[in-house]
Amino acid sequence: MTDDAKTTLPSDALILVLGATGKTGRRLVARLRDQGRAVRAASRSGETRFDWTDRATWAPALDGVSALYLVGPPTPEPIADFVDQATAAGVRRFVVLSGRGVEVFGDSFEPSMAEAERVVRAAGVDWTVIRPNNFSQNFDEDIFAGPLRAGRLALPVGDVPEPFIDAEDIADVAATLLTEDGHTGRTYELSGPRALSFADAVAELADAWGRPMRFEHITADAYVAELTADGVPADTARALADVLAWLADGHNAPPTTGVRDVLGREPRDFSVYAKSTAPRS
C-alpha cells in the first residue's frame, strides 16, 4: 500500500451506507462506527429509511453525506437519477458493490450491478468498484441456507471450484476504500484464498456444524423446477440458474488478490467461516 493510500477521509465526514441491514452493509456500519466514523445506516427497515422506489426518502438520506456505499436496487432504472442527486448533494466518493463477472453477464443477469458501475464511472467522482465472488454467508444467511437446513443443497454447478469470499472481508475492504485515498478509479475483484467445490464446501460445513448435509448436482431445468415449486417466480429462478450455469464453466474459479491488494493481508479461509457459524452447544 502506498503512502497516499493511507490518507484518510476527514474524520468528521458523513458516510452513507445503503443496504445497511444486509450481509455486507451491517458489517460495514459496525466497522466504521468502531473507527469513530460518522455513519448513516440506510435501508427500508434501518435507522434511516431509504427506499429505491420512494424518491422522497433519497434527499434525507443524502443530506450532508461525503462518501457513499452503493448497493444497487433490484432493477436498474433508478440508479442514474439517484447518482445525479447524490453528486448534486455533495457526495464525492462512491464505493460500489458489484459482482465478479458482471462485465460479462451483467446486462443479462445482474443489470443493476452493471448499471451502477457504468453510472458511477461516468459521474466525475472518486469511485471504486468491488466485485466479490459468492459470499460464504450465502450458506447460512441467504439462498443456500434453507436447503442446507433441510439437509440437501442441489445446484447446477457440477464440481467447479469457487473461492468463496467472507462478508467480513468485504466489509473490511469497503471500510478502507471509503476512508482512505489511493483507490480512485480502481476495480477490485474479491475472493477467498482457496477455491473449493460446492460439494467440498457443504462437506466442510457439515463437519463444522455437526449436521448431516449433502450436495447434489442437478440440471439447470431441474433447479428452476425446484425453485418455482417453492414459490420463486419463474424469471427469477431462470436468472439464478443461468448465473450458476455460467459459474459452472469456471469463469470465477481462480482466487484473486483483491483483498490482499487493499488490506495487505490474506482473506479469511472458508474453514474459518465454517467454524465461526457452527451452532454453539
Rank of each mutant, 00 (worst) to 15 (best):
G36A: 10
R152F: 00
A61G: 06
G90M: 08
G158K: 07
E77R: 03
Y69T: 12
S112M: 03
D84P: 10
Y223W: 05
R49Y: 00
F164L: 11
A56V: 03
G19S: 07
L148N: 02
D181K: 11
R27N: 10
D269Q: 11
F144N: 00
G64F: 05
A278P: 05
R131T: 08
A38D: 13
E110K: 09
R93A: 05
P76Y: 02
A229W: 10
F139K: 00
D235E: 15
L62G: 06
D3N: 11
T228A: 02
G151C: 00
I165R: 06
T176W: 02
G182A: 03
F94G: 01
S11Y: 10
G158A: 03
G210V: 10
G36Q: 09
P74T: 15
A30V: 11
L148S: 01
T187A: 13
F94Q: 00
T2V: 15
F105D: 12
L62K: 09
L247T: 12
G250M: 07
V119D: 00
I15H: 09
V272S: 12
D261V: 07
A199M: 08
P255I: 01
S66K: 15
D207V: 14
A229K: 09
A239P: 08
L178T: 03
T24D: 14
A38Q: 15
Y223L: 02
G258Q: 03
W58T: 01
G151N: 00
A248S: 13
Q35C: 12
G231K: 04
R214E: 11
V104W: 07
V104L: 13
A20F: 11
W246S: 09
E141I: 08
A86K: 01
T176C: 14
D172H: 07
P156D: 07
R93D: 07
